[in-house]
Design a protein around this nucleic acid. Structure first.
Lengths: 294, 294
DNA sequence: CTGACTTTGCAACATGTGTTTCAAATTCTT
DNA sequence: AAGAATTTGAAACACATGTTGCAAAGTCAG
């Protein structure tokens, strides 16, 4: 499969060999690449003042099957460009095996989804969420079912940073007990994506009743959480396999931790060093498989 | 003529008034704006799993003449976005404040780290790990401390897919009990990065003694796990803040789930449908904050 | 000037498009 | 539980699509 730049190069290289009508069509394509992706070939032909058949002949002259191949490459180029992810220069190799093709596609999509979080609006939201969490008395962290990992990880890192977060989770249904002392000076960070766990929504309702601020990581502007949260970060969940992805949400969670740590770097560093000493003292880490005796 | 942001705002504003199918179409358009410009409405409807008529109804519901009006606006937005791409990228890098700069840098690095997993060698390893796991009697999943999220999520998704994984985790130190019946036909998937938890390494040693196969997600070719595992996938952990990132490892975990599901798509689909019915039957999900009585 | 070859316009073709209409299915109200 | 209203799926419709094939037009060599 060709890149649109590669196709562009090929058009330029063979321009002299083309008949006048082919040259007319080729020039129009070179000068209006995004229109190739956005309008039909017949409309493009009209705009270029050539016959539709000329476009098909041009594609075949260039060694392609038909005009659809031209459009597909310009469409893909526009997708990559619109995503704003400069590092993804290489398109997928033709005929990759099914398994690797799936893995490749999943990774490409994940990378793109995380890159999209770099948009100015998204960055501004991340800042506002971090501000809100930094100013809270206590931060309650809630993520159920598939979102558990994101909530747990946020809480884990924040405890290493010496922050007072409360993870609303626990065995034998005790997780919600953590909300007992919550009040208006506190904030709940809730992570939930479609399909939304009823218990998550119920706990958010409870938090609202107690005057707790809500900030949310969710999948859409039309999520029920988006309606009640003061601040929302939208995390893509679309996936090329059967279930939604939580990788962008984890990325966002880690970025929030980073922003919070950044607000008091000295304190965060001290807390990490203390945690490190504590864990070293407990012999928590090792750098090799222990040799077993007996 | 509306801007696509204005149309987006209108969709969000009126979302609650929409029927379930209109909401499904609306959500898909919000999440896939550039596809609106790049593919036909019938193809978009197929991807969104709605009837073509639904797309037309949505447009009319929004006060537009027909779907073409939706497409025209998203096309125009894409034209504007593509035109300004290079200039906006440069402005962002020059002007971003410290906080957003940190967030931007973290996201850029994460996106790049995941993109690097698309290398052929990495894809080949993913295939081999998936093969090994697919052929196992039982899969034991181990990830402690910061790696807990990745292990838990893998286990969670695999249970949805109907697979027999055992998560070596549990309260009151009981997690290791799951290893009691492990044997040579089983495989352990271990996730650990520097600093490596001693208990992780001890359990890996125990698994080796029992003849259990080991596959590892870890951070380096020189990780202690890399020395003892049959297959290794290297996940970057480098971060622009104080602590290592687990986002690439979660991405890898999800890709492995996808590859395993791909090996028996029909079975995976049936398992997910059964899980869905089961959870629906338990009233696990909701689409709005419940109204509290009293 | 003529014949051969190439280029080009145009129409037919099979298929896809967005919209409309109708009836079945679902939901809501009484 | 029944009737009304709304939602939805599916098919038909008119039109647009990209491609193919044929013949007219144009160009070039002898």
């Amino acid at each position: 499969m060709l890149q649109s730049q590669e196709l562009t190069d090929r058009i330029v290289a063979r321009f002299d060999e083309m008949s006048p009508q082919l040259q007319k069509a080729a020039r129009y394509i070179l000068e209006n690449g995004q229109e190739v992706a956005l309008v039909s070939m017949r409309e493009l032909a009209r705009n270029a003042r050539v016959q539709p058949a000329t476009m098909t002949r041009l594609a075949q002259f260039l060694g392609l099957g038909g005009y659809e191949d031209i459009r597909a490459q310009y469409s893909q180029a526009l997708r990559l460009q619109a995503d704003g992810f400069a590092a993804r220069a290489q398109a997928r190799e033709a005929d990759a095996p099914s398994g690797s093709g799936l893995a490749y596609g999943m990774l490409q999509m994940l990378s793109s989804q995380i890159a999209r979080l770099q948009a100015p609006e998204s960055l501004a939201r991340l800042e506002r969420v971090a501000d809100r969490l930094a100013g809270a008395g206590r931060v309650y962290v809630l993520g159920l079912r598939s979102c558990h990992s994101v909530a747990w990880h946020f809480h884990y890192v924040m405890t290493l940073l010496g922050e007072k977060t409360v993870h609303l989770d626990g065995p034998a249904g005790t997780g919600v007990d953590g909300m007992r002392r919550a009040g208006p000076q506190d904030v709940m960070l809730v992570i939930s994506v479609n399909p939304y766990a009823r218990q998550t929504l119920e706990l958010v309702g409870l938090a609202q009743d107690k005057g707790v601020g809500i900030v949310a990581l969710t999948d859409s502007e039309v999520s029920p959480l988006a309606r009640v949260a003061e601040e929302v970060v939208i995390c893509a969940t679309e996936s090329e396999t059967f279930f939604h992805t939580l990788t962008p949400a984890l990325a966002v969670s880690e970025v929030l931790c980073g922003l919070l740590a950044d607000r008091d770097r000295d304190r965060a560093l001290r807390a990490l060093q203390e945690a490190d000493r504590h864990l070293q003292g407990l012999d928590t880490y090792a750098s090799d498989i222990p040799t077993r005796r007996g």
